[in-house]
């Protein structure tokens, strides 16, 4: 596939292999091309989050491998994976996971600090990203002063700050009310459309599924459908 950025090969994950084995993933093979807006859906325990963790290099498969831009990340050492994630992957978590003592601006800039960007570059990019997610007026607010929707928008801006190849979002709308969820989806969809940023969601939120251009359905750790 042209412009493929993510590929999984016979990905298997078995928890508790020596006692009562739980097959979280069963020979999962998927490819994601640049610019996709993809949802991975399925009931609880179907393996959505496990698959996302494998793609994000947060967990290692029992067998099989994951390639990002053709590079096998499964064999990487932990320290290499951390550096790889910093440069190539953006994360949006269900519970936002912002640093409570930092302002919105600092939360977004922080990841660029890890990338050793200049102060000027960090400030400029963090400001422009916060403006892009509609938080230009709340840059100096700490997470506790922001609504759930606003916090998740800061998290999206943070994920984009490192200029990753793609963004993995684990249930990004699960804790948001209707308006906030729609607003967040609008922003992400706009970025996908205008800037060709690749988004992969794990979700069982119908609003996200409706917006996705590709929906991968998982059942019992395997791919049930890919439309």
């Amino acid at each position: 596939m042209e412009n493929t950025i993510i590929q999984t090969f016979d990905l298997c994950k078995i928890y508790n292999p020596d006692a009562v084995p739980v097959h979280a993933l069963r020979e999962v093979n998927i490819s994601v091309a640049e610019g996709e807006f993809t949802s991975i859906v399925g009931p609880s325990g179907s393996g959505k989050t496990t698959l996302l963790n494998m793609i994000g290099g947060l967990d290692k498969p029992t067998s099989g491998r994951v390639a990002i831009d053709g590079k096998n990340i499964t064999g990487m050492k932990d320290s290499e994976l951390i550096d790889f994630r910093l440069e190539h992957i953006g994360f949006v978590f269900q519970h936002y996971n912002l640093i409570p003592v930092f302002t919105a601006l600092e939360n977004v800039a922080f990841i660029m600090l890890l990338q050793k960007r200049t102060k000027k570059e960090m400030d400029e990019r963090a400001k422009s990203l916060l403006e892009a997610v509609g938080l230009g007026e709340r840059m100096d607010a700490r997470p506790a002063k922001l609504s759930g929707g606003q916090q998740q928008r800061v998290a999206v801006a943070r994920a984009l700050a490192s200029q990753p190849r793609f963004i993995l979002a684990d249930e990004p709308t699960a804790n948001l009310d209707g308006d906030s969820a729609m607003n967040l989806l609008d922003i992400m969809e706009k970025m996908n459309r205008e800037q060709n940023i690749t988004f992969i969601f794990s979700t069982h939120d119908q609003r996200v599924i409706d917006r996705a251009r590709r929906v991968i359905t998982m059942v019992d750790g395997g791919i049930y459908s890919d439309e």
Partner: peptide, 16 residues
């Protein structure tokens, strides 16, 4: 725990 797990996830090295 969540905050530190997030930091490691987004690319903060364990030595940091």
């Amino acid at each position: 725990m969540n905050e530190i797990a997030m930091l490691i996830s987004i690319g903060m090295s364990r030595i940091r």
